[in-house]
């Protein structure tokens, strides 16, 4: 014990000691290191075969882990990374859907990922349409061990739910948030009825108001070519970008009555409560 915030530059212990994504392993350059940032520090990320090396720029090596197709690192002493068993299912295609730099805080990006009500207005004609804006009641809870937020029984009408969709459908969603800045969506697969495509948002916290958003796909679709899968995710993510970059304040307010949530925002309310429980101070306003 004896965690001192002064030694971490004011970063809270939960954030300091977690694994954070720092890049897509397949997309690292073939030669040399890629310069990026983690929690406000300049770092370099370099591929080493199936592994990787992460260093503070001009400093020492940081902990490193390659998991789910991404490189993860930490400034502190990280415990285990969350489980994502679907990654190992043989009939799934795993790929990086897109990685974009965004001027927002990590939790603003997660909260947007958990939000269905914006689909008709921001992803018009794809994930929603203005004629079907209503958000039906859904379930949300913080798990009993306090380790993740889960939202389930989420139903929404989508004109084009996935790259492989051929028409509008009522889709069922389930969300897991097993890390303050990683959220995982389980969504009806158009190709394999009864099973779910898995789409994850892994947010690299470059700074408190600067992120790289990585959309990871673990999907049951053998037919759609890779560029078409990436194209679909890029289009959707870039539709969210102006929203995220125009949210004020950029850091997520955790204090009471900062925003005006309604029933559709139950996931956001639980997520903010969970961040307060974790003692997260990075990227938020308390």
């Amino acid at each position: 014990m004896g965690f001192k915030m002064t030694e971490t530059g004011g970063i809270d212990p939960d954030t300091w000691n977690r694994w954070h994504v720092v890049g897509c392993h397949d997309e690292l350059p073939d030669d040399g290191a890629r310069a990026t940032r983690l929690l406000g520090r300049a770092i370099t990320v370099e591929r080493r075969g199936s592994g990787a090396e992460v260093r503070l720029t001009g400093g020492g090596a940081l902990p490193v882990k390659v998991a789910y197709g991404y490189v993860w690192s930490s400034l502190g002493t990280p415990g285990p990374l969350f489980e994502l068993p679907e990654h190992a299912e043989a009939d799934r295609r795993n790929l990086n859907g897109c990685s974009f730099f965004v001027r927002t805080s990590p939790p603003r990006a997660i909260e947007n990922f958990l939000d269905m009500a914006h689909f008709p207005f921001v992803h018009t004609g794809i994930l929603g349409e203005e004629a079907h804006p209503d958000v039906k009641d859904y379930d949300v809870a913080i798990s009993t061990d306090g380790r993740e937020v889960v939202a389930s029984n989420c139903h929404f009408y989508q004109p084009k739910a996935a790259a492989a969709s051929t028409g509008g459908v009522d889709v069922t969603y389930r969300y897991r948030v097993p890390h303050p800045w990683c959220a995982i969506l389980y969504k009806d697969s158009p190709a394999k009825p009864g099973r779910s495509d898995v789409i994850a948002l892994f947010v690299q916290p470059c700074g408190e108001e600067e992120i790289v958003a990585n959309l990871a796909l673990f999907i049951l679709d053998d037919d759609t070519p890779l560029p078409a899968l990436r194209r679909f995710q890029q289009q959707i993510f870039v539709q969210d970008k102006p929203i995220l970059e125009n949210q004020m304040p950029r850091r997520l307010p955790l204090y009471p009555r900062a925003d005006s949530p309604v029933r559709a925002d139950k996931a956001s309310i639980a997520y903010r409560r969970w961040l307060r429980q974790l003692g997260t101070s990075f990227g938020v306003l308390s």
């Binding site: 990685s99 990436r230 194209r231």
Partner: peptide
Amino acid sequence: LPVEFYPARE
């Protein structure tokens, strides 16, 4: 005819 500028630099 889509051409992937990023990340594939097609």
